[in-house]
Design a protein around this nucleic acid. Structure first.
Length: 569
RNA sequence: CGGGGUGUGGCGCAGCUGGUUCAGCGCGCAUGGUUUGGGACCAUGAGGUCGGCGGUUCAAAUCCGCCCACCCCGACCA
């Protein structure tokens, strides 16, 4: 492709709307154009990358026994009502009304449609296992799209759905997908960390996410260097740090005028925060819940939500707390009645805690569990932190941030039951199909690739997904052979099957080099009067500073060799 | 949905406190010329309902009201 013909312009300045690296670079490279919040047009360069990523995904899905299908974007709302997931998605599910006043949802994902499709085509265990996938546009009316292609409302996603006769079959499908996913990330040229994930409202026993480590990532990951433990902070466990057990002392009231927060009380009474008990109030499905946790820890609301089996969890308002007869700032589990108490198991580690006195400006010291109060549920509901112990091996945990680049789930039989997808086994007995689903965002992968592979000058595409493989960069000068040699090289490289971006513009060297760096094409081939003196061209990798002079008749062979394993559009 | 911010040629911005002398600057774009190893230079030129609607006024990019869009933090997010 000649740059003079290429649709899309590079920008010198960073558009004001972007503040993450991938978003800025995608805009500066002229690869995407925002049409509305979280809705983008893909220009030729970006679309080529998308197609390459899709091609890698297709090959891996096919290799793992997948068959590609195409499913509708418009889906009857009734289908979503049948599984109850219209409520689970809430406002993210965009519903339209057609001319006949029928309600249609824009598909945010395709489990319902595909399960219904499978229900009509599978009757026997002989039809299983089945792995179907699709790569297409999905729509979620996200409350807040952000960071360009990282979180869009309209986005291209691959979903594979597995259908097996039993858990063992599901395990096999799951393992196959796990390996396929590892292959995809490796082939796309970047590292993704496999982490344990919360499976969310949909349930299921296993769920993993693939995280691309990036400062700008939306998720926090907790992992261990020593063993292989890694989990999304939503799910992560930790060893919370044991305290020396002291001899329980008699409980006593202390005056704490004006002291409400853990920090204030701890400073005022000169006790460490891990010798205090923190009380937090939530409303779970409409009911007030008293949560108690050691003062140095924080509540992980997702763990709490799972512990309570609630679908709607939020912090209680001050009014709700007061109405329950509790003194905010001095709330106490001691002497509490009529409210469900959930405690983090950290309260069993430590003794002689300072807790609220349930009287204004009053706290209790030397509070001990279970001597002084009882709880309804004891569980791990604490947020894991770096520095705490690994739940597997005890080594200090490390925290980092990542972009969720893939998520795989064991769904079980929930959807099949709701939608009547069943099969008859060898004994003639009917069973629901056991399902799994495996999603990967194509555009998000593209964004993640940039987040992980860029420098101050621009993108540094991994070879396999670069929009072009070589940037042919002649530095023209009248009265020389440069133009002619460049044209010939362009024809030869193209004939050898290489994808070449040919900078045939009459721009100054600085402009051309800057654009080459910004666009991040893996190899740059420079031809100039200077290189022609030795009848050669300069070959430079985008990822390296050094270049190499290669004889003109050896350029095609060299690039062919270097780039042979990569995907072509 | 709560909090904060921004809307002025394709991009980045100034102007808004003091209503005329305000629609301007840089980049980009067009034409011509001089240039060519890290975003060259000169000359000429095109391009804007100042987000929208309404109000105040002799006069509004500028003041007031309402609305819209976009961005950031949070909430939310199989």
């Amino acid at each position: 492709m000649r740059i003079s013909q290429l649709f899309g312009k590079t920008l010198r300045e960073v558009p004001a709307e972007a503040d993450t690296a991938s978003h800025q670079l995608l805009l500066r490279a002229g690869m995407i154009h925002q049409v509305a919040a979280g809705v983008y047009a893909y220009l030729p360069l970006a679309w080529r990358v998308m197609k390459k990523i899709e091609k890698i995904i297709r090959e891996e899905m096919d290799g793992a026994g997948g068959q590609e299908v195409m499913l509708p974007v418009l889906q009857p709302l009734e289908l979503w009502q049948q599984t109850g997931r219209d409520k689970a998605f809430g406002k993210s599910l965009l519903v339209l009304t057609d001319r006949k006043e029928r309600q249609l949802a824009l598909g945010p994902t395709h489990e319902e449609v595909i399960t219904e499709l499978v229900a009509h085509n599978v009757q026997s265990y002989r039809d299983l296992p089945l792995r179907l996938y699709q790569i297409q546009t999905k729509f979620r009316d996200e409350p807040r799209p952000r960071a360009g292609l990282v979180r869009c409302r309209e986005f291209i996603m691959k979903d594979l759905y597995s259908f097996d006769v039993d858990e063992a079959g599901l395990d096999e499908s799951y393992q196959k997908m796990l390996q396929a996913y590892r292959n995809i990330y490796t082939r796309c040229g970047f590292a993704a960390m496999l982490v344990e994930a919360d499976s969310g409202a949909i349930g299921g026993k296993d769920s993993h996410e693939f995280m691309v480590i990036a400062e700008t990532g939306e998720d926090e990951i907790i992992y261990c260097d020593k063993c292989h433990y890694a989990a999304n902070v939503e799910k992560a466990q930790s060893v919370k740090g044991k305290l020396l057990a002291e001899e329980p002392l008699p409980m006593a009231e202390v005056s704490t005028p004006g002291m409400k927060t853990i920090e204030e009380v701890s400073r005022f009474l000169n006790v460490p925060t891990n010798k205090t008990l923190k009380a937090i109030f939530y409303v779970a499905d409409g009911k007030l819940v008293f949560v108690v946790i050691r003062g140095d820890l924080e509540v992980n609301e997702i763990k709490l939500k799972n512990t309570l089996h609630s679908t709607d969890l939020r912090l209680a308002t001050e009014g709700e707390v007061t109405a329950a007869g509790i003194v905010a700032g001095s709330a106490s589990p001691v002497g509490l009645h009529g409210i469900k108490v959930v405690a983090d198991d950290s309260i069993t580690s430590g003794s002689n805690f300072v807790a609220g006195g349930n009287k204004t400006d009053t706290h209790l010291k030397n509070v001990n569990y279970p001597r002084d109060f009882t709880v309804d549920i004891m569980a791990d509901i604490a947020r894991a932190h770096a520095g705490q112990g690994c739940p597997k091996c005890g080594a200090p945990l490390i925290a980092t941030r990542g972009i969720e680049a893939g998520h795989i789930f064991k769904l079980g039989t929930f959807l099949a039951e709701k939608l009547g997808a069943s099969f008859v086994d060898a004994n003639g007995v009917s069973h629901p199909i056991v399902m799994g689903c495996y999603g990967i965002g194509v555009g998000r992968l593209l964004a993640a690739a940039i987040e992980q592979n860029h420098d101050a000058k621009g993108i540094i595409w991994p070879g396999a997904i670069a929009p072009y493989q070589a940037y042919l960069c002649p530095l023209y000068r009248e009265g020389t052979q440069v133009a002619e040699v460049a044209e010939r090289l362009y024809r030869e490289l193209a004939a050898a099957g290489l994808e070449v971006l040919f900078d045939d513009r009459s721009e100054s060297p600085g402009v051309k080099f800057s654009d080459a760096d910004l666009l991040g094409i893996p190899y740059r081939v420079t031809v100039s009067p200077r290189t022609l003196q030795s009848n050669s061209a300069e070959v430079k990798k985008r990822s390296q500073k050094e270049f190499e002079l290669v004889p003109l008749d050896g350029v095609v062979a060299k690039l062919s060799e270097e780039l042979k394993e990569y995907v072509r559009c």
